[in-house]
Design a protein around this nucleic acid. Structure first.
Length: 927
RNA sequence: GCCCAGAUGGCGGAAUUGGUAGACGCGCUGGACUUAAAAUCCAGUGGCCAUUAUGGCUGUGCGGGUUCAAGUCCCGCUCUGGGUACCA
């Protein structure tokens, strides 16, 4: 039979399904290996060829690990809550569950067709109540724990209450907002409501008034990672800052651990760097500046306490509570005016003209605790309320933002650091400040002459001794805002009694999403859940109206896969102890500051409370690159319906128009198909070159609107899944972005046909021989085993595809049809092309599946060569080659080379100055 | 602005530790088979020059450097992609 990929692929996909070939079960006799893909959001558009890239890579690795005797957990599921289904529901009235279910069916069909080795029994959907029961459970656990800074871990609120009852809160060092001190007696005297309000401040999931990112168009608040440059990542709508009472998760408590543990992860440096920047740790000091003629103090954070002698003004964030207190009557109107102006400006506008300096003097003064000088206090929006204390000491000589501000308001600039080897200069002549940390201190009292780093240390010691301040580490990482005023998400398992939130009892989970009559806010402006009937407890206490955000369901999904049907726990101890953590995680970098931080945080929390045995969820992580689209263009002559071919376009005035890549082949347009593509082009005329219409092209993002989307189903229909899998890998290194160009796919398809033909005679009868292989044949096989093994281990799948091609080309040349060579070849090819190899395996007479065969190990003995063909260079330029024995000595090699007739020409009668002989590499002669 | 990647033929890319640059594939050119086309097979294919066979020069974004030897290491730039955005 000829290679009939359609029959073969359907047949084996059916068999795998019927025989549960990819079912994973705990097997303590085998080492485990957990390979995870970032599960997709099932959008209405279905998968395009870019989506499965990472899935194919992880599938190859999973199959490779299985062949090497590992018990592989390789699951797939759906991140099924989300905005698009809800937006669609708002427009059409169709319940998002129905849309989502339909989309998931389509996704699954597409995924199955590619031949992935997923254990579909473990499929999860975040919108399934049996699944989100555990999302809600984790939320309650977060609610019932606080973060003890002394032990650096989460501890039960119940224990905290006991501490409060016995000794108050004076010795409690918690991650929380500042709280006033109370004794045990005072605690006991507080009302239930007062106590709960205090506890809320300690909980890891807490409700508080915070500045949130409000997106009016989406009608919801968003987390920091969901906002980019003042717009929502989803939809691109404007986002403004607003103070609202919202649920937040105290991820900032884990900042230090999230940062430190990055070191032990096998992630790419760039991804770790993104997380490091997002966490943003900075070391410095907090210092108190007394206000002039007042008992009040303003507290500032600085990383450069050494520059305290260079402070010439202070700046407060416009929102700071201190503003009214420092503002004098004289400046009140101007300050109010400035605050009003700032509030009007959106985040976006502020960012857009970050270069414009603005601010206002308050009339107030602070006293520099180190110099006792009076320092004027300004307000300006370049100081952010959300970071540090919302107040800074400005050192214009050594901070570029302060420098700009000083120049704008004509404030004095003092130099306190001199670069090594330089003399002090007049700051009036400077173009910018000197922000570097190399140099010596001047004009700085007792730290004069010290290096910056010594000076920082000495200053901190001084201020701590004098009680003016203390050492302090600050993080940029904010707590994660966890409420969404939307319908299609997990309901919070929380009800309110007297305005205080209480968790739903765990045995009553899941708290299921109620039906509503419309997916819109209520007339009162409440979230959609405000429309639900009976949305309250049996006792009549109202449930929370917000739902959880997208990252809720994805923060612990990798744990649920370990034990997806467990009704009594998120994951059983047994399953967790066996599968432990994800050994290999493949997905896009776009989740670096969202999902990948949140799930590390959830995992650490679950680790703290003893539910999971590993404190990091994803041991090794690879980022696959994006597959870009390759768009095609036709060129319409302006004002006509004529289209001119690419190389003639400069002779006319033309408008380039996107043409659907699916009607273009090797940049040649199918003109008939083009006429039928769009009624507008029905009567199109073409100006051809060489009788063809040649299209232009460009690499762009793959998108419907650019008509460059290629659907995997179409590729599978035409070439088969094995070809698609191998071609996606052949395109280039996994981590790099590259354009999809269907044109190259023929080569990979031809390879599979050639592979098929090795096992068949000229009449396509299956025919393999039992003869002993020759040395050459074994060398080809073992060379390939070696190369492919090494390549898979370092995730270099594109080069292994090349190695397979070389191998099949060479075996074809030798007309080799020996089973002893071809069968092992089929095994090493099976992770890449599972269907064709499964068929071959069965044709070879094997009973079981090729997926549980043994991956062959290469044997060095077949690769031993007796000679090596040395490239001979003269002054570094390769001139000719010479075959020499493997174990030749340098001396003999030199003699042989210099005696070679071709060498004479290059030596030109001179005496070579030097001969370099690198065994098995090169010979270089220096003339 | 800052941080991180990357730049190699017409195209995707290979060269794993400083050691033959361009593997493999696409495309293109020529040929075989065919009434023809498709499929398949064979040969050629970085550029320039010379062609009589052997050839020669040049070439990995640009400019320097280290080295017997540099796509690979060092210094200085340019461009492209990604992250971040007043974080004190």
């Amino acid at each position: 039979m000829e290679y009939n990929f359609r029959n073969i692929e359907q047949k084996w996909q059916k068999t795998w399904d019927e025989k549960d070939t990819y079912k994973a079960e705990i097997d303590k006799d085998k080492p485990k290996y957990y390979v995870l893909d970032m599960f997709p959001y099932p959008s209405g558009a279905g998968l395009h060829v870019g989506h499965p890239l990472g899935y194919i890579a992880s599938d190859i690795y999973s199959r490779y690990k299985r062949l090497n005797g590992y018990n592989v957990l390789h699951p797939m599921g759906y991140d099924a809550f989300g905005l698009p289904a809800e937006q669609y529901a708002i427009q059409t009235g169709q319940h998002p569950a129905i849309t989502t279910d339909k989309n998931i069916k389509r996704y699954k069909e597409q995924l199955v067709k590619i031949g992935f080795s997923y254990d579909w029994d473990r499929e999860i959907r975040t919108c399934d109540p049996d699944y989100y029961k555990w999302t809600q459970w984790v939320f309650i656990e977060l609610f019932e724990h606080w973060f003890n800074k002394k032990t650096q871990k989460a501890e039960p609120i119940a224990e905290l209450i006991k501490t409060f009852e016995s000794e108050g809160n004076k010795d409690v060092d918690a991650a929380c907002d500042e709280t006033s001190l109370f004794t045990a007696d005072e605690w006991k005297k507080k009302s239930e409501k007062q106590q709960q309000e205090i506890l809320l401040n300690y909980r890891l999931a807490y409700l508080a008034d915070t500045m949130v990112n409000w997106c009016a168009e989406l009608g919801t608040v968003l987390a920091n990672d969901e906002v980019k440059e003042g717009f929502s990542v989803r939809g691109g709508y404007p986002v403004v800052q607003k103070k609202m009472k919202q649920w937040s998760l105290r991820i900032s408590a884990y900042a230090e651990r999230l940062l430190n543990n990055l070191e032990k992860l096998e992630w790419t440096d760039s991804l770790k760097e993104i997380q490091r920047n997002w966490i943003g740790r900075s070391e410095g000091a907090e210092m108190k500046f007394k206000l002039k003629d007042s008992d009040l103090e303003m507290e500032i954070f600085t990383t450069r306490p050494d520059t305290s002698w260079g402070v010439t003004f202070m700046v407060l964030a416009p929102e700071s509570e201190l503003v009214p207190q420092v503002t004098t009557d004289e400046y009140k109107d101007k300050v109010d005016e400035y605050i009003k102006e700032t509030k009007k400006r959106s985040e976006r506008e502020r960012l857009a003209d970050a270069k414009t300096v603005s601010g206002q003097f308050t009339g107030g003064y602070a006293i520099n605790p180190l110099t006792n000088q009076e320092i004027p206090i300004y307000i300006s929006d370049y100081v952010l309320m959300g970071y540090g204390t919302g107040a800074i000491m400005a050192v214009p000589g050594h901070d570029s933002r302060d420098f700009k501000f000083a120049r704008h308001f004509n404030l004095p600039i003092i130099q306190v650091v001199v670069k090594d080897g330089e003399e002090p200069t007049d700051p009036q002549t400077w173009d910018d400040s000197y922000d570097g940390k190399e140099g010596k201190m001047i004009h700085s009292g007792f730290i004069n002459g010290l290096d910056v780093n010594e000076a920082i240390e000495k200053t901190i010691q001084h201020i701590e001794k004098e009680g003016i301040g203390n050492r302090k580490v600050n993080f940029r990482l904010r707590d994660a805002i966890f409420s969404r005023q939307r319908y299609w998400g997990e309901p919070f398992p929380v009800y309110f009694k007297d305005g205080i939130p209480y968790p739903v009892k765990k045995e009553n989970l899941p708290l299921e999403l109620p039906e509503v009559d419309a997916y819109l806010p209520t007339d009162k402006g409440e979230p959609p859940l405000g429309r639900a009937k009976d949305w309250h407890t049996e006792e009549g206490y109202p449930y929370e109206l917000s739902t959880m955000p997208g990252f809720a369901g994805s923060s612990a999904y990798y744990l649920r896969y370990m034990d997806p049907h467990n009704n009594n726990a998120l994951v059983s101890k047994e399953a967790n102890e066996y599968w432990q953590d994800v050994d290999l995680y493949i997905g896009g970098t776009e989740h670096a500051t969202g999902h990948l931080i949140y799930s590390r945080f959830w995992n650490k929390f679950l680790f703290d409370i003893g539910w999971v045995c590993k404190d990091e969820p994803f041991k090794k992580l690879i980022n696959q690159g994006m597959i870009q689209g390759r768009s095609n263009f036709v060129y319409r002559v302006k004002g006509t319906n004529k289209f001119v071919s690419y190389n003639l376009r400069n002779e006319y005035e033309v408008t380039p128009i996107h043409a659907d890549v699916n009607i273009v082949n090797n940049d040649i347009l199918d003109t008939e198909a083009f006429k039928n593509w769009n009624p507008e082009y029905k009567d199109a005329e073409f100006i051809l070159e060489d009788n063809k219409y040649v299209c232009g092209y460009a690499v762009e993002k793959m998108s419907k609107s650019l008509y460059n989307v290629v659907n995997p189903d179409d590729i599978i229909e035409q070439y088969g899944a094995d070809t698609l899998r191998m071609y996606e890998m052949f395109l280039g290194p996994l981590e790099m972005s590259k354009p999809w160009d269907t044109n190259g796919i023929d080569g990979v398809h031809k390879f599979l046909r050639k592979f098929w033909r090795l096992f068949h005679d000229n009449d396509f009868n299956f025919s393999v021989s039992e003869d002993e292989p020759t040395e050459d044949e074994l060398k080809i096989l073992h060379k390939t085993i070696k190369k492919v093994t090494e390549d898979i281990e370092r995730f270099s799948f594109n080069t292994s595809v090349s190695a397979f091609m070389i191998c099949v080309n060479e075996l074809t040349d030798l007309k080799c049809n020996k089973k002893a060579v071809l069968e092992p070849l089929a095994i090493i090819l099976s992770p890449f092309a599972p269907h064709i190899t499964e068929e071959i395996w069965s044709l070879c007479g094997n009973i079981g599946s090729i997926t549980v065969a043994d991956f062959p190990t290469y044997e060095e003995k077949y690769l031993v060569e007796s000679s090596f063909e040395y490239p001979v260079s003269f002054n570094g330029k390769m001139r000719f080659k010479i075959k020499l024995p493997m174990d030749i000595s340098a001396k003999d090699a030199e003699k042989q080379v210099l005696g070679h007739e071709l060498a004479q020409k290059w030596i030109e009668g001179k005496t070579p100055r030097k001969v370099i002989f690198v065994p098995k590499k090169i010979i270089n002669i220096v003339i």
